[in-house]
């Protein structure tokens, strides 16, 4: 119960945070006029009919950036505890952190050399 009380704030916040902004939408839905028609609801495309499927294939580039992002995001999760305890650790902790960052910076250098970062 004690731990529940501690985390209750975040729990209630997560429930309430989407509800608060949803209130004006619901309110607008109640009091605003509802006169839908086919033209009003058509997809916006500068006045012409949409051609083909909307969910088109996307550029390979975005996928590669996503992959590099994943590497660094995971690295970050490991670096947070290191930075947290850094004050109490000795100089070896710096070398360990340096090695870790160096190994993962390799990925960036590799991607750079392989011209993944060139926008084509």
């Amino acid at each position: 119960m004690e731990i529940l009380n501690q985390w209750a704030f975040i729990g209630i916040f997560f429930v309430l945070a989407p509800i608060l902004p949803a209130v004006p939408i619901i309110l607008a839905g109640v009091i605003s006029p509802k006169k839908p028609n086919a033209i009003k609801q058509s997809t916006y495309e500068c006045g012409v009919e949409t051609v083909g499927d909307t969910w088109v294939q996307f550029k390979m580039q975005y996928y590669l950036y996503g992959l590099i992002f994943l590497i660094f995001d995971v690295e970050m999760v490991f670096l947070f505890p290191w930075a947290l305890a850094y004050k109490q650790l000795d100089f070896a902790a710096f070398l360990a952190g340096l090695l870790f960052i160096f190994l993962l910076s390799d990925a960036l250098v590799y991607a750079w050399r392989k011209k993944v970062l060139e926008w084509v």
Binding site: L27, A28, Q41, S42
Partner: peptide, 10 residues
């Protein structure tokens, strides 16, 4: 804005 219609595209 409260008086504006909620348009949901088809």
């Amino acid at each position: 804005l409260l008086g504006k219609e909620n348009i949901t595209p088809a």
